[in-house]
Each structure stands twice: as structure tokens, then as C-alpha cells.
Nucleic acid binder design. Structure first.
Lengths: 130, 130
DNA sequence: TTGTAAACAATAATGATTACTATTATTATA
DNA sequence: TATAATAATAGTAATCATTATTGTTTACAA
């Protein structure tokens, strides 16, 4: 049985205010302001739990540490290969690629994860503020 | 200037014989049979170099350690969520999703990486040999 | 040959994440 | 409201994958 925890509540609330997909470290530093003796392990444990519960989303981009997204509505992400920023991308569903994959795979396709990569607007314009 | 190295040669040859996308650790254990005092660092260094040269492909699936693929022809991969196996998938190009993403992204889309997930044939049939 | 620079083995260090343990907080119940 | 049961915590150690360092060896060009 899972009990309420003020730390977990705060982690979830913090994520709801951020649209830049922060890492566990960033979340730790921010939530620590409200809970000065917060432990990094607590952050990781709760991020895992919230991900399992489907209340947040974990992004394993393969570039740097995992990131977390408080928005669980279906959407995609673009990774800037210059500054490392991860931005949201609202596109129409591309779930047809699962059907396509199913026709060629001897087994059951349950879904996919896709990350787009490229250059963000700021990097294209050489603004170094990203 | 990059010099010839028998270790690198052997790593590349080994990858060419394998279709199961081995990890650095597995590659190390196998190539060690020919070079008994091979170092794990040498494996990582050469895998990075070969990846940069475009002679092999690195797969960062987000599940477990990175894997490597000696086949650089464009193709996709399916991760079995039960046994962790990574299998090849030959499907027609889905590069149109980059065009789709471009229409919604304020910046430049250069490509995408997509991993499908599901259950492999062996796991569906409860054969525990995978 | 011989000089030089790349590659090596061995090992230490790092970064991200998970595990452990004694204490504290939450919640059900007396 | 007090108390008992136990989930969650803070603090810390350990692990896992990977990268860095260093002194020695190997490839190759002069």
C-alpha cells in the first residue's frame, strides 16, 4: 500500500510547472528549497514510482541523464544536437508505424518511442542563451 | 591520423558475425578470446571510434547498456519488453515523419530515432530460452 | 633502423542510479 | 486521541556503465 508523501506531492507539482523536461538532479535542487534535507534517492524513488503509476513520463533520450515530463498527454520530443535542449512537439498521430512494423515482425508490437533530433531556433540563430 | 589496430579490426569483424546487437561487455568477453589481455577501455574507445566513422551503429535503447550493430544499412529495431532481446526489423522508410515533425517545429529537424517495443515470438510462446 | 605519435593494458575516476539502514511520517485502528 | 504497523525518508554506501589517466607497446613513416 502506497502512503501519501509531501515530498512526492511536491515533486509532481514541480514537474507540472516545468516544460523543459528537467533531470532528477534539477528536480532535486528545486524541491530541496522546500524540503532542505531532501535526499536525491527520494527523488529517484518517487520519479520511478510516479512513472510506474503513469502520472509522469520518463524520457530516456540516450543523450545525457534521463529527463522527466509532467505532461502525460501523447506528444513527441525534439532534441537539439547543439545545446541538448528537449522541446515538445505536437504532431498528429504516427501510430500507423506500429501497424507497419507489425507486418514485418514475428511477434507482437505494442508501441514505439521516437525522438526527433535537429537544431532548435536559438542554436540556428547562434543565440548562446540555450 | 588513425593507425591500424588488430584489436579494432577484430571488434569490427566480431560485430559483422553477430545479429543480436551485443553490449560492450559481450564484445569484450568474445574478442578477449583472441587477445587475452584486451582491455575493456580499448573496446569502448574503438566502439566510439567505429561509430564516429560510421562503420558500426550504436543503439541507445534506454533499457540497459548501449548495444552495437555491425549492420549500418538503414533498418529499425524491436525491443522485447520481457526478455530484453533486440531484433532487426526491415520496414519501408518512415522518413515522412521527419517532414511531418518539421511542419510543427520551430527549428531544423535532421532525423529521428525510433525503437519499437513488444513481445518476441519466443516470449509469446513462453519459451524461456530467450 | 629509428623517431614519433597512435593505440594499448591497467587502473582510477566519474556520473547516474539503485540499495541499505536506522529514523520519521502516515494512516488504520483501539 | 493514543498507539501500533509499516511505508517513506535522509543519509550514505554500493553498483553499473562509461570515460579519463598513465606508462608501455605498436604501427608506420623518414
Amino acid at each position: 500500500m502506497t502512503k501519501h508523501s509531501r515530498q512526492r506531492e511536491c515533486i509532481k507539482e514541480f514537474l507540472a510547472t516545468r516544460y523543459d523536461h528537467p533531470t532528477a538532479e534539477i528536480i532535486y535542487l528545486n524541491v530541496k528549497e522546500k524540503f532542505p534535507n531532501l535526499s536525491l534517492g527520494t527523488v529517484y524513488r518517487n520519479l520511478s514510482l510516479l512513472t510506474e503509476l503513469g502520472e509522469i513520463q520518463k524520457l530516456s533520450t540516450g543523450i545525457g541523464p534521463d529527463r522527466f515530463d509532467g505532461n502525460i498527454a501523447p506528444h513527441y520530443h525534439v532534441l537539439c544536437t547543439k545545446c541538448g535542449r528537449v522541446q515538445d512537439l505536437e504532431i498528429e498521430s504516427i501510430d500507423h508505424i506500429d501497424t507497419l512494423a507489425s507486418t514485418q515482425f514475428d511477434g507482437k508490437i505494442e508501441g514505439h518511442f521516437t525522438y526527433f533530433f535537429g537544431k532548435c531556433r536559438d542554436c540556428l540563430e547562434n543565440k548562446n542563451n540555450c
